[in-house]
């Protein structure tokens, strides 16, 4: 088994709320400096910068998983992680069809830049991305899982866009792979404040909007990187394992 330190919730400049430093080469460099060898790119309702980060990581010991942080109808943020750009594109098509057609106001929300692997500007997305799609959390979870992805409600303890404050408890009967806790809480504190999360695998990420918040708090032991391997690790199955490193 190979050891991976993973940051699975990371925004690029495609997310209006991310700092301008969140461009592919700087993301890769910081991951390398911090000993992180697995990241997922998870922009708000968007996937356009994933390929650029993957290209920037070529030649480094760093795997970049395609992902998205989708905002469901209920205002809940959820990580969607995939093996391939094709799966991410298929999910993006669903999201695009359910995203209200509003125009971004860069002066208020910030710019939404699509960039190349060097961080150079390609275009500015004009459609407002960081808003609720009209997809229910349950439907999103089922569809992402059917596409082969992992569905992980993000920062579940957070009052803003977190599953537990908004929906009270974890919905039953849907294939939720794990729950993400925010960087401001330890797993023990999360379990004590929210006993309803007992039994779910927990991951922790920096919800990285600036380079300094990269945590790499997830330690995985995997044969190689794939959604199937991570799924087993979250369940501590077949010799794969996962734990949250106390940072």
């Amino acid at each position: 088994m190979k050891r991976f330190r993973a940051e699975l919730h990371l925004h690029t400049v495609h997310s209006a709320c991310a700092e301008v430093e969140m461009i592919p080469p700087l993301i890769v460099q910081r991951a390398m400096d911090d000993g992180i060898n697995l990241i997922a790119v998870t922009d708000h309702n968007a996937t356009a910068n994933i390929a650029a980060v993957q290209k920037a990581a070529l030649g480094y010991d760093l795997t970049v998983l395609p992902g998205m942080e989708v905002q469901t109808r209920e205002d809940v943020h959820c990580l969607c992680l995939f093996d391939t750009l094709e799966q991410a594109a298929a999910w993006q098509a669903v999201v695009d069809a359910h995203l209200p057609n509003l125009v971004n106001r860069p002066d208020f929300f910030g710019e939404q830049y699509v960039v190349d692997e060097t961080g150079d500007f390609i275009r500015s997305e004009t459609r407002l991305l960081a808003i609720s799609t009209n997809i229910s959390l349950d439907d999103a979870c089922r569809q992402v899982t059917e596409l082969g992805g992992l569905f992980i409600p993000a920062h579940v303890n957070r009052t803003t866009n977190g599953l537990l404050p908004i929906l009270g408890f974890v919905p039953q009967g849907i294939p939720i792979a794990a729950l993400e806790i925010s960087l401001h809480i330890t797993p023990d504190q999360a379990l004590s404040q929210f006993p309803q999360i007992a039994g779910y695998p927990l991951i922790q990420n920096g919800d990285v909007h600036m380079l300094d918040s990269m945590l790499g708090a997830n330690e995985f032991f995997l044969e190689d990187v794939s959604i199937a391997e991570i799924r087993q690790a979250l369940k501590q199955e077949n010799g794969r394992s996962h734990k949250i490193l106390l940072t």
């Binding site: 109808r73 209920e74 229910s136 959390l137 349950d138 404050p165 908004i166 929906l167 009270g168």
Partner: peptide, 20 residues
Amino acid sequence: LSCVMAGAAKQGIWVTLQSH
């Protein structure tokens, strides 16, 4: 829903746009 669980009174009517 976390606020509802803490704040709504028994036998009350609850008005919401949440349909989950």
